[in-house]
Design a protein around this nucleic acid. Structure first.
Lengths: 208, 208
DNA sequence: TGTACATCAGTGAACGCGCGTTCACTGATGTAC
DNA sequence: TGTACATCAGTGAACGCGCGTTCACTGATGTAC
């Protein structure tokens, strides 16, 4: 196979090529801004070809979301382990990974959070979604163990607070109309915001 | 005019009726889930009628968003003044108003934040958007004046943190698939989250 | 108060378009012997 | 290694649909005299 670029009648890996084309489209044009026809065209294939690999549009979107959650979970897990030195460092690494994911994988992010797919759409999707959430919850749990029990918020609540702030920053200040952006980068906002929140819980940050 | 319910050939206030029909549709079916045709039908009018009042679909969406921002700004201003007793109480009232708005006016919320309208789409939209933001910024500014200057975050940053958390809570835990919801209400999450954040800034909440 | 007329706010039919999807087909690939 | 055949993964044409929008029209309303 001297030339992998050229292909014959058979594509080789059309399923994944369609997912990637659709990710580009959805990232560029928003949740509804991709069509099966366009994805097919971007993959150099007729409009009917996608139906050999997906039962329909919904399933393609669900697959994008599933791959997104898998990747998200991987990145969060990596960040969590990598930040081993302390629960606090690991927790902050997870926060940064959240934002980095949204920035680097906008198509996945949109498919996951803005496309309107129900995470229950398939077992695989739900599983991937749960795995990602579990990393967030575990990071919150491990960190909150450092607090005296009477000042510990419920783990789920702790995780929800930080998730919400991260998501809000992404939606309001990273994605969306550039006109809305304020004088701070999303990364600054998240770092300072989570820092203040953690101090409120009783963690005194080493000044960095 | 004994019967306001019946109408003759002329509708009376079709423009606003269309806005309201579209708000219902967008709230039910998501950002792209409304069409001009459906809005017209819901207002008991032919599909062509809307074009006597709006140049097109975009303009209808922009009008929904504009009305949303005006209402949002009104509610925030009301909450802010109403909470006069102290900057802290006023600030917290604004936070609650944010969530209440999202809950009570889902159509407006979607049009404002999920429809993809650029806030610069028209001067009126931009003005309404700015007015709402100013309330948030003012609330943050007034409250932060209570802090010693060296512990004061920039006002815009302060406002952005709380806005992001509010928006994130709305998107993740108030709207969207019911499956995602955790064991806490959005209101609880916001109150505790902002409470912890404010403590991190140096405000000791009177325990409530 | 009555009439003539301009304007306003609807109608209904039609358009072009692009979308999701289906279907009968066909060329390429893999397998059994 | 060669042939026969099943299966796979594409094609291209077509479908029905609903959408946004336009257009010539018409009935209702408001105004001038």
């Amino acid at each position: 196979m001297p030339d992998m670029g050229k292909r014959g009648y058979h594509h080789g890996n059309l399923r994944q090529a369609l997912v990637e084309a659709a990710l580009d489209l959805i990232a560029e044009k928003g949740p509804q801004g991709f069509t099966m026809a366009e994805a097919a065209k971007a993959a150099d294939v007729s409009a009917a070809a996608p139906y050999r690999h997906f039962t329909g549009r919904e399933e393609l979107i669900a697959e994008m979301a599933r791959q997104g959650y898998e990747l998200f979970a991987d990145l969060l897990e990596y960040a969590y382990r990598d930040g081993q030195p302390s629960p606090l460092a690991a927790f902050e690494a997870v926060g940064r990974a959240y934002l980095a994911f949204a920035r680097k994988h906008p198509g996945h992010y949109v498919a996951m959070f803005e496309s309107g797919v129900a995470p229950n759409a398939s077992r695989e999707l739900a599983a991937a979604c749960a795995r990602a959430n579990q990393v967030l919850v575990r990071a919150a749990h491990d960190l909150s163990q450092r607090l005296p029990p009477d000042r510990r918020p419920p783990t789920e609540m702790f995780a929800a607070h930080v998730t919400a702030m991260s998501h809000g920053i992404v939606e309001l200040y990273a994605r969306g109309a550039p006109g809305t952006r304020g004088p701070f980068t999303p990364e600054e906002l998240l770092e300072t915001g989570v820092g203040i929140y953690l101090r409120g819980l009783g963690f005194l940050e080493p000044d960095h």
